[in-house]
Write a protein that binds this DNA or RNA. Structure first.
Lengths: 340, 340
DNA sequence: AGTGTAATCCGAAACGTTTCGGATTTATGT
DNA sequence: ACATAAATCCGAAACGTTTCGGATTACACT
């Protein structure tokens, strides 16, 4: 049978009130009494019933996270890594993480209502956002602390705390690096135009060219999916049309590795007479031959930062919005010909 | 202000009891009454306070998971993937997942006591086990449903539900496959002897050789870490000593990819006059050149199976132990010379 | 008319904790 | 001695829900 406060009270001869206050380190209980009570609680193996405690309107010390539909996360491991960062950072602050998912595969409002309305969490991390996102409206409405990973569309107001990655800058850094290496004809393999971050990446590429006084050429751009195969094909298209091309910016490591295969097959030596960069820094990038220069934005770090800020928001209820654009790092390896 | 049962009761003119029973679909409330109450609850945006409900001794519909110390999980993404499987499968059954970690980096008993003793979960998934594991003893003691990923040491009794992977069979399949391809001199690059599964893997290798009537040669075995670099070096050692070797079994994809680099550098063409196999089927394996034959045991599937069984254990309280040894699959690609 | 039964509803207690306000005892200052 | 303050303790109410046992009404059957 479970041990309750009443049991400890009975055993110790003090009231339930005093036992509660002793165990919670209130200063209106005698030091000896406290010690006595504590030792009894310990002996009995007393563990407070957290539900009863939280019923008092106390904090749950728990943050909530709703996974997007599995169809969105099956193939990449972005979320798995994010969660890991969240959990460990939360633990540092004494918080647990309650994770849920919609069995129907929607990312339904219902789960938010159940967790928040049901008082099981102190705050939420929202993972993906949509236009006119009902979840954000709900959370704002009920005044539940939350932080979002990612911005909404550029034409909507961001009246909430968020963290996003500055992918424009990432591609800018990569392109600039290639320019510094002396390349004049630099192609770019972009993701599908439908993805939200694609325009940002294109902008980064253009920005670097323009700063260097180099022209932007529409025919140096090719689009594809975020896969090895797509990079392979895309690089082939670029090389077919532009024999003078000596460098390419990949918008994803797998695309870049696919491009590497094509470029190598055509007789170039990547890192010497041809340069390539990727994006993400997946493990395979470091072990590629030659190792791939790439842009890293630590997903783990994202998880940590989201969590740290959410906990701050929960505890301090700031009035202004925390809106952070993560600055990714350029990881220079042999594939871009610098120091390789 | 939060809407409670009392508010719905007042608004509808019925008692709190009736409102509660109406919303919980008890059959002693009139159909019209129920409809009326439900519509009012809906209008008011009533959400039951789950803490109060659970205080009644009800189920929490939550399963707990404690992450191992971050130092154990930083470099591999095993746990990230496992969690993903757990969360999605739990959602299918209407369960949430409460995850915690020890801020000190131990995997402490305290967290189990807090979650289980605090009545926040219906059952636990235990991730890594040790000799004389106090956590297993505790969970058995308080009669909390739990399932373990991994077995204890071979010399301890396994009086609990568990799921593990049959890595002996995985390496057996890989070795057998190489033998079928006609290879007579097959080396193996093993992990450190200190790892629990290393002996299982060695056994699989021996078993395949012995079934084929081939001798086991101690000097065909080399040990290393689970890294690319280690595979590179290990393969070099084997080739230095045995010029007639035409195949190697890697105990990890990264080791195999490292070996691939060495073998290629020595002038062999992997997939034609040399065969290689890996283990794990990381993304890089599929995209290697040539693609790597490897052994896959879906981690995602592990997470799902652990969860499914735990929920069954929670609901049915079976008297016998569910103990499952996952049979991994051999994924045949070009690196082993079959159909490549 | 009286009895039994089904349908519908509700009051009060319970779950285990915290908190409010006060009670009792002991020490302090004059 | 006497009022005042400090230290220590506790009873009762509260948090929001479910459940137990019974109450009330209506209706059918002898």
């Amino acid at each position: 049978m479970r041990i309750t406060l009443k049991d400890v009270a009975k055993q110790s001869g003090y009231s339930v009130t005093t036992v509660s206050r002793a165990l919670n380190n209130y200063d209106d209980v005698n030091a000896e009494t406290r010690a006595h009570i504590m030792s009894i609680a310990d002996n009995l193996g007393y563990q407070p019933n957290l539900n009863a405690r939280q019923l008092q309107g106390r904090k749950t010390n728990t943050i909530g996270l709703v996974m997007p539909p599995p169809s969105h996360t099956r193939d990449d491991d972005f979320f798995s890594l994010l969660i890991k960062g969240i959990i460990y950072e939360a633990a540092q602050h004494g918080y647990d993480v309650l994770t849920s998912a919609d069995p129907q595969g929607k990312d339904g409002l219902e789960i938010y209502q159940r967790l928040v309305g049901g008082q099981r969490v102190d705050g939420m991390i929202v993972a993906r956002t949509y236009r006119k996102d009902a979840r954000l409206a709900y959370l704002s409405d009920v005044d539940c602390p939350f932080i979002v990973h990612g911005r909404t569309a550029p034409d909507e107001v961001n009246h909430f705390h968020y963290i996003d990655v500055d992918s424009q800058r990432g591609i800018y850094l990569a392109t600039q690096h290639l320019i510094t290496q002396g390349h004049q004809h630099i192609g770019i393999i972009l993701p599908m135009a439908s993805l939200a971050f694609t325009p940002y990446r294109l902008n980064g590429y253009k920005q670097a060219l323009s700063e260097a006084g180099m022209p932007f050429r529409e025919d140096y751009v090719v689009h594809g999916e975020l896969t090895y195969e797509s990079g392979r094909v895309g690089a082939g298209q670029l090389l077919d049309q532009h024999a003078d091309m000596t460098a390419m910016v990949g918008c994803n490591d797998w695309m870049a590795l696919g491009a590497m295969a094509t470029v190598t097959a055509r007789g170039y030596t990547v890192g010497e007479d041809f340069a390539l960069t990727g994006y993400d820094d997946v493990p395979a990038a470091r072990h590629a031959d030659p190792p791939l220069t790439t842009v890293r934005s630590s997903i783990h770090d994202f998880g940590e930062r989201l969590t740290r800020q959410l906990i701050r928001i929960i505890q301090e209820r700031p009035t202004s919005f925390y809106q952070y654009l993560h600055q990714p790092d350029l990881i220079i390896r042999a594939s871009s010909g610098a120091g390789g």
